[in-house]
């Protein structure tokens, strides 16, 4: 159980982040629900968490903006007086072949998906160091391990997240802050809704467990990594992909 622990989940208004926020709450955590633009969706996640008997707040913040991230983390610690779990989940895609990819599409994805993880990690480290405990769980992707045509920006960011995860794990281990990454395969969310049925069919052929993943599959692993049961795991990348990448 995560009774009365405090979690901050970035990009928790939709998709995987939303499910992570709910899963942590079901197991006893109070949750700060970060979002970029979807205020109403974030507020409905807050309501759902409150109906489980936990505390929750929605916080608008752009993870690629340092000041915005600092203000968000301060709001969490001011509200809950501690911060035990950070889930760096916020992410975007702007796919295109390298030959067609605009510089801005490259930097936007790197700034959100990679720099955002750095900024949030830096902002929570102080509180976690003082507490002498903390868990940071970063959302990577299996394509960060394998590469993927059409996603140079995204893959570079996710491979970067894996390196950042390992380095943060080493830097903060002595303060009992455990840092791991989850690398999802193909999960049904808005992010993947843009793919055609044909593309999904092709994807299915690559999945040994013969079905697409759901946000719950990821959320349960995040909850495990946040729990006491995972107290001897740090610096790892856990693939949750139905066996796509082995």
């Amino acid at each position: 159980m995560l009774t009365d622990q405090v979690a901050l989940v970035t990009g928790a208004s939709r998709g995987i982040g939303r499910e992570i926020a709910l899963e942590l709450a079901r197991h006893g955590a109070h949750v700060a629900v970060n979002y970029a633009g979807s205020k109403e969706k974030a507020e409905s996640v807050v309501q759902e968490i409150e109906s489980l008997g936990r505390k929750a707040i929605a916080i608008q913040a752009d993870v690629k903006d340092e000041q915005s991230v600092k203000t968000m983390v301060k709001k969490v610690t001011d509200t809950f007086n501690r911060l035990d779990i950070l889930v760096n989940n916020a992410g975007i895609t702007k796919d295109n072949l390298i030959m067609r990819m605009k510089e801005k599409d490259f930097t936007d994805v790197i700034d959100t998906n990679l720099k955002g993880v750095f900024l949030c990690t830096k902002a929570v480290a102080r509180t976690m160091m003082k507490q002498r405990s903390g868990r940071i769980i970063n959302m990577a992707s299996i394509v960060g391990v394998t590469g993927n045509p059409g996603q140079a920006n995204y893959v570079a960011a996710k491979a970067g997240v894996i390196g950042l995860t390992k380095t943060t794990a080493k830097e903060l281990a002595s303060r009992n802050i455990l840092v791991n990454a989850v690398a999802p395969g193909f999960i049904t969310t808005d992010m993947t809704a843009v793919l055609t049925d044909e593309q999904k069919e092709d994807m299915l052929k690559l999945i040994p467990l013969t079905k697409l993943g759901q946000p719950e599959h990821i959320a349960k692993v995040v909850r495990f990594l946040a729990s006491d049961d995972a107290s001897y795991i740090t610096g790892q990348v856990i693939h949750v992909d139905g066996g796509m990448v082995m």
Binding site: R126, M129, K130, E171, L172, S174, R175
Partner: peptide, 9 residues
């Protein structure tokens, strides 16, 4: 080096 960071905090 991490002790020094913490000390400054």
């Amino acid at each position: 080096s991490l002790d020094v960071v913490e000390l400054v905090m």
